[in-house]
């Protein structure tokens, strides 16, 4: 509508000119009359949703983390007690360790597999069907995917172990042994999310002007050299975005663990979100669970900030 052109309507005085009087275009210009409240109405649905479902719960979560709150009785303020308890809680620290272990495996695998897949898609195939297939796992509900994988990875009945045994291996307890629990969960996570990440990177690849590659070829660079010297540097802003999103997503791992291992065996896959969940919804210790959530929030903010700075995510070579 006319909203987008409205800013150009008043004549701009020359920059070096005398100080202009304070202008009130919304009041003066007929094009602006009554726009303010309409804008608010149009924004309202999104705004209300954001306030009710994001801002309020966050603020309440922050408040609750300083309280003893067992849901059925009103919260009581206990200051930093929850955080003191958290620093002394060995399960919290082991959960954090498990989570970091998971993030490292899951994110590095996702990045490598996604970049490789996207590059292959970009350079080899033009088929939209194949490009579409890549994203299929992402479209499946996580709970369904995790359930199916937990059957396939089952020690007795799983097809994966049938294959392992056909090649002369012993049955592997993918989801019921300490060594394998987190790698198995990470594998399911990568399988599930790789397509989505690959598609974003693929979109990024398409923004790289083909002339760059032409120039590269004229200068005598091979495919692999062009990949490392041209593609990766030019993709950096996209990769930074994808990395940040993946790290945040991996830190928040919950559903696959909840379906496949429930944090076991012996807390071997008890990621932080799982521990928070069992404290809150299992033991009704919402105050303590909120405190841990707040810590996770702080950790994510710091990590994201560092990533953005280190990767100079807001700059691009193609500009």
């Amino acid at each position: 509508m006319s909203l987008s052109t409205a800013g150009a309507a008043p004549k701009r005085p020359p920059a070096t000119g005398p100080k202009r009087p304070p202008r009130r275009p919304a009041a003066n210009s007929p094009a602006h009359r009554g726009d303010g409240w309409l804008a608010w109405i149009l924004i309202a649905p999104a705004m209300i949703g954001f306030l009710v479902f994001a801002v309020y719960p966050t603020l309440r979560g922050v408040y609750l983390s300083f309280t003893e709150f067992r849901v059925l009785t009103p919260p009581t303020w206990i200051g930093l007690e929850n955080f003191r308890e958290m620093f002394a809680d060995s399960v919290f620290w082991s959960s954090l360790g498990v989570t970091v272990y998971f993030v490292v495996i899951a994110v590095s695998l996702t990045m490598i597999v996604s970049i490789a897949t996207a590059a292959v898609l970009h350079r080899i195939t033009e088929s939209t069907v194949i490009r579409g297939l890549i994203i299929l796992p992402f479209l499946i509900s996580t709970v369904v995917a995790a359930t199916v994988w937990s059957w396939m990875l089952d020690t007795q009945l799983g097809i994966v172990n049938v294959v392992v045994q056909a090649f002369g291996g012993d049955g592997v307890q993918f989801l019921t042994s300490r060594e394998w629990a987190i790698p198995s969960v990470a594998f399911i996570h990568v399988w599930k999310n790789m397509g989505y990440t690959a598609i974003i990177i693929f979109a990024g690849l398409q923004t790289i002007p083909p002339q760059v590659y032409e120039a590269g070829r004229i200068d005598g660079a091979g495919e692999s050299k062009m990949f490392f010297r041209l593609t990766l540097p030019l993709l950096r802003p996209i990769l930074a975005l994808v990395l940040v999103l993946n790290v945040i997503g991996a830190f928040q791992m919950f559903d696959i663990v909840s379906v496949t291992t429930k944090g076991g065996p012996a807390n071997a896959s008890n990621v932080l979100q799982m521990y928070i969940y069992s404290k809150a919804f299992g033991q009704f210790d919402f105050g303590y669970a909120s405190a841990m959530s707040l810590s996770l929030f702080a950790i994510l903010i710091i990590i994201t900030f560092l990533q953005m700075r280190l990767l100079r995510a807001n700059e691009s070579e193609t500009d």
């Binding site: 944090g263 012996a266 299992g282």
Partner: peptide
């Protein structure tokens, strides 16, 4: 009760 369950289970598993 639930805290007992959540605390003891991993130790038995170990």
């Amino acid at each position: 009760g639930q805290e007992i369950v959540d605390t003891i289970t991993p130790l038995f598993e170990a």
